[in-house]
Design a protein around this nucleic acid. Sequence first.
RNA 1: CGGGGAGUAGUUCAGAUGGCUAGAACGCUGCGUUUGGGACGCAGAGGUCGCAGGUUCAAGUCCUGUCUCCCCGACCA
Length: 491
Amino acid sequence: MSDKGITPREKNYSQWYLDIIERAELAENSSVRGCMVIKPYGYAIWEKIQEGLDRMIKESGAKNVYFPLFIPKSFLSKEASHIKGFAKECAVVTHHRLRDTEDGKGVEVDPESKLEEELIIRPTSETIMYDTFSRWITSWRDLPLKINQWANIVRWEKRTRPFLRTTEFLWQEGHTVHLTHKESKEEVLDRLNMYVEFGRQYLAMDMYFGKKSDSEKFAGAVDTYGVEAMMQDGKALQFGTSHDLGQNFSKVFHIQYADKKGELKYPWQTSWGVSTRMIGALVMTHSDDDGLVLPPSIAPIKVVIVPIFKDSNREKVLRYTKDVYKEVSKKVEDVEIDERDFVSVGFKFNEWEKKGVPIRIEIGEKEMNEGSLVVVRRDTLERKSIKFGNASDEVISLLEQIQNSLYEKSKELLVSKTHRVKNYEEFKELFEKNKGFALAYWCGSEECEENIKYETKATTRCLHREGKSISGECIYCKNKSTEEWIFGKSY
RNA sequence: CGGGGAGUAGUUCAGAUGGCUAGAACGCUGCGUUUGGGACGCAGAGGUCGCAGGUUCAAGUCCUGUCUCCCCGACCA
């Protein structure tokens, strides 16, 4: 990581995002409001994430499903606090047909085609799924029900930000239904831990996680738990949530089952999700001034081999390159050879660095004669020469080292930018200067939380050390408090 | 919805007090020379200056209207 500490904001995202996404400019003179085009390389990263996470989700017992994109408006009117959170920021389908304009040069909405009941483009699928659940679930034998959906959703946010908050985004949403609250609460925490585990293992990111405050929780949830990561600029990025829905939805959607005694009961529900925002988090955690740095676990290309040749030795070098490729591929997946002869070697080096490929192998006349190869790691740009015979072992162990060292760095950043503050003065100073996370007691009153937000722009991220018997005084009102919270400025 | 800024080539932008054939860099195409850290030379393609009116002999430039985008807030993963 460079000590310049350049943030994506200063760079306006372009340097880091260019290979992954671009702003959608599909219509003339307008971009499709806050939407992004995900380029092949960016989508390949998403596929890696899907692959890893989907495996974990299935291990939890959830099965993949697909529900409709359209939600009848009436469904969203059922859960009162749920509407509050979403109803205002949704895309609404009101008509179903276009007709030619009178001048014949275009099309317009046919007023005759007005829908009797408007359809909402899903901002999340609780309502449409739970309506169906009410028919799926009739007996205690049907529980627990665990399903997951990979889908796109639309939230008409007032302000969008590339990758971190786009109008349309891809995500995974899991929904489970349980016999008891004890069981559903366990599920909520299990899935939260699954996200943390995934973040650490695959994304090489460390993070805090825990219960959110009432003001930050999901509309319609009893409790929301979140995963909070720290970006290089010290700002917080929430990249996953897990909700304890209690019986709030089962009651309004009439999900009922007959228990062993034949009595009708409302089950307990959870929902949990992560989105393409994860890629944003990944980029903003590891990248440096030279471009992306991808952890090997989710890099679409783990190793790129760049042969260095002239017209005179081209065939020989390429033949040796293929041998190296075969040797390395014995134990490593996603290896590519960059054989292009219309760009210079320097150009290639730079290009693969920008794309964050974890390991680059350089092979030229010299290596061919020595039976060696040069290996360069992206995270440290350290280069070394290794013997052909050791290639696949060396590369695989280097990939592991990169993965570990990225995680360690992320952990270090998280720890070094987290400060336990004693009083409000220290608290304010922290957010004026360094940013990062503050650990502080909070009494739980919404008033204190709001004042803090107003005065410092820092918000509660999540509860720290839940369940520990600790006590101190609220950072704002100085009343007694038994809860320590993580505060941060958030994206 | 409030507060700022901007619409000129594929991209980033320059075009001062109106002036004649609208520019640069990067990118793109062709040819040649190159290739161990973003190559170079030459030749080319590419623009009704966001849109609609108006003022003027003359508008990218001035006026009016309008649309759109970007940044900062409120909302949020």
